[in-house]
């Protein structure tokens, strides 16, 4: 079960992120850079929260405290990243104004068609992404890092020659971990999209959903026990529900055509193109 489990679990956690990366991010260099930046920012939030964990010695064993701190830092960094991205656009040759204008006027989300081309200080046209696709890319970066940091060491341990388990946990331990990592990839995407739109449109009350569901999903993982996988169903189901709600909410917030979105899920454009031929 070692190598098989390694491949299975790593594919469960990362294949959706990988597919999303390949089909929506990899073709645009700027998106890749933003993905890297967001991953780095997530790393910063983790760093801050672990410094707090390290500094508050009496509460080191009480992981609830550091989890809450970590969630707060993650959300703060998410908001900080929004301002960083917008400010960064402004510093490179006045691109920020145009980007803001375009994102205020634009209503078609998740497409590359609505990019604004303008000339920055380099004398070369720089493509400024639409806010919605930008937030999606950032969310992917956040989610990937969150999933990766929770999974890589487990995966590395399980892949080793002749490993029968990690520390006497139940058989589905790695499966639960990888499904949770997968859920958090999706959740982070939804949270980031919702957060960015909220700040952009000054509709801050939707932030309550983000923070609330983040707290809920994270703290419910305290139910996980190493004895049996049954209780782990609760956090998984709850985070699945939260992810679905977050998906609907973010689609609503970016004013996407819901029916069109679901049709495109069932019948992707490439499939239609193939059928027409």
């Amino acid at each position: 079960m070692t190598l098989l489990e390694f491949f299975g679990c790593s594919l469960i956690s990362f294949s959706p992120a990988l597919i999303m990366f390949i089909f929506t991010v990899a073709n645009n260099p700027l998106k890749i850079i933003i993905l890297t930046c967001s991953a780095f920012f997530w790393l910063l939030s983790l760093l801050l929260s672990s410094i707090v964990w390290f500094a508050v010695v009496p509460l080191r064993k009480q992981l609830v405290f550091s989890m809450v701190v970590s969630i707060l830092f993650q959300e703060a960094i998410r908001i900080a990243f929004y301002f960083f991205i917008n400010g960064g656009g402004g510093s490179s040759g006045g691109g920020g104004g145009a980007a803001a204008a375009s994102s205020a006027g634009g209503s078609e989300p998740l497409t590359d068609a609505d990019q604004v081309t303008l000339t920055a200080g380099t004398g070369r046209p720089v493509k400024i992404l639409h806010l919605h696709s930008l937030s999606y890319v950032c969310g992917l970066g956040f989610g990937f890092m969150a999933g990766a940091f929770s999974m890589v060491n487990l995966l590395a341990d399980i892949s080793g020659p002749g490993s029968v388990g990690l520390g006497g946990e139940h058989e589905g331990f790695l499966l639960v971990s990888s499904v949770l990592a997968l859920m958090f990839v999706f959740l982070n995407i939804c949270w980031t999209v919702v957060t960015f739109v909220c700040i952009e449109d000054r509709r801050l009350y939707f932030l309550a959903y983000v923070w609330g569901s983040h707290l809920l999903c994270s703290l419910l993982t305290l139910l996980n026990s190493s004895a049996s996988p049954l209780l782990s169903l609760v956090p998984i189901m709850v985070s699945l529900t939260c992810a679905l709600i977050g998906l609907l909410l973010s689609l609503h917030l970016v004013e996407a055509n819901l029916a069109g979105f679901f049709t495109s899920l069932v019948s992707p454009a490439w499939m239609l193109r193939v059928c027409r031929r």
């Binding site: 672990s50 390290f54 992981l63 989890m67 971990s177 993982t221």
Partner: peptide
């Protein structure tokens, strides 16, 4: 900087979290 910070501070924290499947 990130090497030393991660190996000294972040990794123990993350390991403590992942050992109990907390995200």
């Amino acid at each position: 900087i990130f090497y030393f910070l991660t190996s000294l501070i972040v990794s123990p924290f993350v390991d403590a979290l992942t050992a109990q499947q907390l995200v």
